[in-house]
Design a protein around this nucleic acid. Structure first.
Lengths: 120, 120, 120, 120
DNA sequence: GTGGTCTAGACCACT
DNA sequence: GTGGTCTAGACCACT
C-alpha cells in the first residue's frame, strides 16, 4: 500500500499517515496481521523525518489499529472488536458535517447517497 | 441560543463558536435574519477576548452564513444558496469517519441509522 | 429613479447611494440638470438617517456629479467634462480585478466580453 | 518580490498585502510553488505587526492563492482552478468603474485600450 | 454602540 | 523555526 503525503493539505503529516493506514485497514488493502513498513523505511520512502512516522505509528497503536511486534516493527491488529460505535470525536464531526449538509439544502436521502458511495 | 466553549478541546475557540452557530442555523434555533450577540457582548459572556469572537464572525461571514456591519451588528443570512454539496474538506472527513465505522464492524444500515438521528 | 439599499452588503450605505446615483447618471436614468430628491425625502423613503444621505450627497458634490441649487436641493450636473480618464483609485481597482481575472484563467477577449455587456 | 505599504491609503494593510501578492501571482513575479516570506520576516521587513501579515496570509489561503503550514512556511499554490469567472464583488466593482468611465466620456474602445494595457 | 483593524506580546503544535 | 491562536488594549468608520 502506497502512502502519499499532500503537502498542500493543512492536515499534519502524521495525521495523514494515520488516516491512510486506517483507510487501508478499512477497505482491505491492509490485512489483519500484515507487516507495516518500518518507521525508518517509510520515512525515507516519503521523504520526511522519521519522528513524524513514529508519531503516526504511536497514535495508531494507542487507538488499537496496530501493534508492535518483537523485531521493533509494526503489524496490523489481527482482530478488531466489533464495537459498532463511533468515537465521541467522530460523532461530533459527523454532526457538524450533517449541519452543513442541511444548510446547503441537502435532503437526508441525498446525504445517504453520498455516504453509500463512500461506504463502497 | 447559548454558546458554550470547551476549554479542554483541541478545536480552537473561534472554530467552536463558528461550529455552534452553523449548527444553530441548521437545526432552526437561529432563524434567517436573526440578530446575533454583539462581538463584545458574546466575548464577555463566554469570558474570552473579543478578537476571538471577531475571528469566528469573520469566518462565518466569508462562508456566507451571516452578514455583519457597523450599523446593526451581525445577523443570520436570509437566504442560503441551495448547493446540495459538501465541501472537499467535509467529504474527506466523512470518508475518514466511514472508514472508522467500517473497522468497528458497523454496517452501512447501522451507520445510516446514526446519520438519520443526527439529521433529525 | 429608485434607490435601494442592500443591508447585507458590506459597502457603507452612503457609498451605495453614491454608487447608484453615479450609475443612474451613467446609464441615462438621471438626466443632466435633473432634480434629485431632498436629503430628508430620500432618507425617509429609504428609511435611514438623513445624515447618511447628506454624506452621500456631499461626496457626489465633491466629485462633481451633482451641485446644490438655491432651494437647498440638489441637481445632476449639466455638463460633464470629457476627461476620458479613470481616477487613480478606479485604475487601481481595475488592475486588481484584471489580476484576479487572469489567475482565474480568463483571456483578454473573455474579459472584454464581460466589460462589453456591462458597457451596454 | 517587494511588498510596499501605503500608510495613507484607506485600504487596510492586510488587504494591500493580499492584493500585491495576487498581482504578483497574476503577472508571473511569483511562480507556482514559490516560497513566500515568513510571516514574521515580512512583518519585520514592512515594519508592521505579524498578526497583520498573518491575516493577509489567512485570507490568501482561504481564497486558494497560497497554502501554508508550520513545516515549510507559506507557498504559492501549484494549480489554480480555471473558473474563468469574476467574483460577485469584482463584477459589481467593475460595473461601478465602467459607469464612471462612461460619465467621463470614455468610449467602450477607449476603455478596452486601458484594460488591454493592464492585461499586458 | 457597532464591527473592523492594528499592536505588542505570549504560548502552542508540527517538524 | 514555522504558522496558528489568543490576550489586553487601542483607535477608527459608520450610523
Amino acid at each position: 500500500m502506497i502512502i502519499s503525503i499532500n503537502e498542500m493539505s493543512e492536515i499534519p503529516i502524521y495525521q495523514q499517515i494515520r488516516n491512510q493506514i486506517v483507510q487501508g485497514i478499512s477497505d482491505g488493502r491492509l490485512s489483519p496481521g500484515e507487516q507495516l513498513p518500518t518507521v525508518r523505511g517509510l520515512a525515507e520512502e516519503i521523504g520526511i523525518n522519521s519522528m513524524t512516522v513514529n508519531k503516526a505509528y504511536s497514535l495508531l497503536k494507542q487507538e488499537g489499529y496496530i501493534f508492535a511486534d518483537r523485531r521493533s516493527g509494526a503489524r496490523v491488529r489481527k482482530e478488531f472488536a466489533v464495537t459498532k460505535e463511533l468515537s465521541e470525536k467522530s460523532r461530533e464531526l459527523l454532526q457538524q458535517i450533517i449541519s452543513e449538509a442541511k444548510v446547503s439544502g441537502m435532503t437526508k436521502e441525498e446525504f445517504f447517497e453520498i455516504c453509500g458511495e463512500l461506504y463502497e
